[in-house]
């Protein structure tokens, strides 16, 4: 077996594994953990379009998750519109908001962009927590919204976990494809150039700010879809769960630890950090609530010191070494 064949076989196996997983994992609780894992991987992949490629650090992405969840839910509860359409509507609104926020702030460098996105995210949370009604739409302030039960594909509600699993898996696959595709066309090169050396890129005639705003719009659109997905999965959400800093930070942490600006980084980051979070939540949260963020912080410091490009790098090296070793030993 040559190195390439082995590589290809392993990849096909991996894809098959992921797609057939619900056939073996029948316990809904474990499936739920996997769904949330992919949900985070998807969110981080979306975040990565701005946070990774465009060289800025957005720390308010939970705002767009909230916009997605609230838009589709309000449309479904008040007007009977299917969450599938609500999802797109939420995405469009999030993209517009993203552009409005992005145009003035993406010109800022370093901490200023991070701070202004953070302020927007927190502002939105405070606003929603203090608003019971917005016109005819019920937001319920801090109490959140319950989505009425009605299991059907049209209503984006399923009795089993498997449909949710496949939906988020396909969403993740599409997000990864978009990222991969963007990295191969002009916008990807412009963003990368603008993220690393904005002056040099501008001197070469690249309109860095414009491409950053485009990336922001795509990222916000995709993030909002995840908001709708979460709302339909849990059938209940409230501001503290989907808006606010905790979630925004978690996404950024996953990306930074996994490997910012890479394709595999967000997925690997989610795969490694989500279990840490689940376990610390289950076993340690009564002692120290929010401990998982502290653990993330520690991991982040270690990773930044020893692997500034994220843990995807040593893992990739290990994989290459493994491929070489296996193929060499076989002949």
């Amino acid at each position: 077996m040559t190195r390439d064949t082995l590589d290809r076989t392993l990849k096909i196996l991996a894809v098959l594994t992921v797609f057939t997983l619900p056939l073996w994992v029948t316990n809904p609780s474990y499936l739920q953990i996997l769904i949330l894992l992919f949900w985070y991987a998807y969110l981080t992949t979306s975040w990565n379009l701005v946070g990774g490629w465009a060289g800025v650090l957005p720390l308010g992405h939970s705002a767009y998750i909230g916009i997605g969840a609230y838009t589709s839910t309000i449309l479904a509860v008040n007007y009977g519109i299917s969450p599938w359409f609500g999802m797109i509507a939420g995405g469009v609104i999030a993209a517009i908001v993203g552009v409005i926020i992005g145009v003035p702030t993406l010109k800022l460098r370093g901490a200023y962009f991070a701070l202004s996105t953070m302020a927007f995210g927190e502002g939105l949370r405070v606003f929603v927590e203090n608003t019971d009604r917005l016109g005819s739409c019920v937001l319920n302030g801090p109490r959140g919204i319950c989505i009425p039960l009605s299991n059907s594909f049209w209503n984006f509600q399923f009795m089993d976990k498997a449909p949710y699993y496949y939906i988020i898996l396909i969403m993740l696959a599409i997000a990864l494809f978009i990222t991969w595709h963007m990295s191969r066309i002009r916008i990807g090169y412009y963003l990368n150039a603008g993220g690393e050396e904005p002056e040099a890129a501008q001197a070469l005639g690249v309109n860095v700010a414009k491409y950053k705003v485009i990336a922001m719009a795509i990222s916000c659109f995709m993030t909002a879809l995840a908001g709708t997905f979460y709302a339909q999965l849990a059938l209940y959400f409230y501001p503290k769960a989907i808006l606010g800093l905790d979630l925004s930070f978690e996404i950024a942490f996953i990306a930074l630890i996994g490997g910012r600006g890479t394709l595999a980084g967000p997925v690997l980051g989610a795969l490694i950090l989500r279990p840490v979070s689940e376990f610390s939540r289950i076993y340690l949260s009564s002692v120290l609530p929010g401990l998982h963020l502290v653990i993330y912080g520690l991991i982040l410091i270690l990773v930044m010191i020893f692997q500034p490009r994220g843990i995807q790098e040593p893992l990739t090296r290990f994989y290459k070494w493994f491929l070489d070793k296996v193929t060499v030993s076989r002949g």
């Binding site: 590589d7 990849k11 990864l176 997925v267 690997l268 995807q312 990739t316």
Partner: peptide, 12 residues
């Protein structure tokens, strides 16, 4: 692209 390829094994 190589990261994409290799990262996926880690996932699996």
């Amino acid at each position: 692209t190589s990261l994409w390829r290799n990262g996926f094994f880690g996932v699996a």
